[in-house]
Each structure stands twice: as C-alpha cells, then as structure tokens.
C-alpha cells in the first residue's frame, strides 16, 4: 500500500491529473481504518486526535522510504484534510439524526461510537457550511483552512506546502478565520 500511495504522489508530481483522484479514496479508507482500529484497541475513554491520526496515516502510507519532497506531501495532506473533514462531518450528521431519534437499534450500536460532545457536532456542521461558502468565494482560502484545521499543520508547514511565505499564510489565516466566524454568526442571527 505504501508504494501505491508513493507512486500516486509521484504520478501527481509528474503531472498526472488522474492520479490525484485516486489518492483521496486511499487516504480516506486508511484514515477510517486507523480510526476504527484505534477505538478498538485503545482503552475506552481515550480520545484520538484527528490530527495525530492524519500524521500516523502519513507515516504508514508515505513515510519511511524515499522521502518525497514537500510538494508530494502537500497532495497527501490535502487529501487527508479533505478525508478527515468528510469523516468528521459524516459523524456529526449521524449524531444529529440520532439526536432527533432515529432507528433505535442504530442508536444502541452507535451511541458510543461518537465520543465528541454534541455541541461540537453543531459547531462542526456550521463550520462546514461556512467553509463551503468560502470555497465559492475563494478556494485557496478554503484549502488553507482545511489543511490547518483538519490536519493540524503549523503555519510554517502550511506555508511550505502551499509554496507561500509564512507571513502570507498567517494573514490569510487571520482573514479566513474572521470571515468564517462572521459567516457562522450571521447564520446564528438569521
């Protein structure tokens, strides 16, 4: 599997546009698998940080061997960020429907498969909506937020991946952050 992802990353670097679309499902599946495995093996009550998970997935899928340059990593983390966003949003949606009372059996089975607090899922869903709007306005900014928020990359790492200066990342982050909040709060007041 490791080689598969590395190959894809290399292909992307070589300009193979098709390869990028193959990366996402691979990373997505790996993250889900990792999350499940964690939850099964770790003692109950132990929380698993999404960002930690992403980095573990990176090590498993890419790391070790011939280190790809940061650009290669960039593709990986972009895919990981999008995957993690999907995973978390799916869970938040599921939680929300459960709260409204769905199929009882489902509740029994999945009531403890979500550890986060219920209010977090509300926030998460609101953030997701706002992020979609930002994506329409300025896809670059949305990608920045996705990377920072869902994979936990630092300003410097993000700068390296996006190929811009840390100062630009910092300022853009500040702007996107304020923008999203204004958007989310606007939603609330409506």
């Amino acid at each position: 599997m490791t080689s598969e992802v590395t190959q894809i990353l290399n292909a992307i670097e070589d300009g193979d546009r098709q390869a990028a679309s193959q990366l996402l499902p691979l990373v997505y599946d790996e993250l889900r698998r990792l999350a499940t495995q964690k939850m099964t093996r770790e003692p109950a009550g132990q929380t698993i940080q999404p960002t930690a998970l992403v980095h573990e997935a990176f090590l498993r899928l890419v790391g070790g061997e011939d280190k790809p340059n940061w650009d290669g990593r960039g593709h990986f983390f972009a895919a990981a960020a999008e995957s993690m966003r999907r995973i978390l949003i799916e869970a938040a949606r599921r939680r929300k429907t459960e709260k409204r009372g769905g199929d009882r059996q489902r509740i029994d089975l999945s009531s403890d498969d979500v550890v986060a607090h219920p209010e977090d899922s509300e926030t998460l869903l609101a953030l997701d909506d706002a992020l979609k709007k930002l994506d329409n306005e300025d896809p670059e900014l949305a990608r920045l937020v996705e990377l920072r928020y869902f994979t936990g990359l630092t300003i410097d790492q993000t700068a390296e991946i996006l190929g811009v200066s840390p100062r630009t990342v910092k300022r853009n982050w500040a702007y996107a952050r304020a923008w999203l909040r204004r958007e989310m709060e606007g939603d609330v007041s409506v």
Binding site: T36, M39, A91, R182
Partner: peptide, 26 residues
C-alpha cells in the same frame, strides 16, 4: 467592522482543533 469584530472575539471554533475522532463502524 464585522470581520474585525470576529477577528478579535475570543473562543473561535477554528482555534479548537477537532478533538476526537468518531469511531467508525467498519
């Protein structure tokens, strides 16, 4: 003004990384 207010307001959702990964039914 709204942007600046949002910029300065404390407790931004983005400042709290998503803490927990949902367990996924394989």
């Amino acid at each position: 003004d709204a942007l600046l207010q949002a910029h300065e307001a404390p407790d931004h959702a983005l400042d709290r990384p998503p803490v927990e990964v949902p367990k996924i039914d394989f």
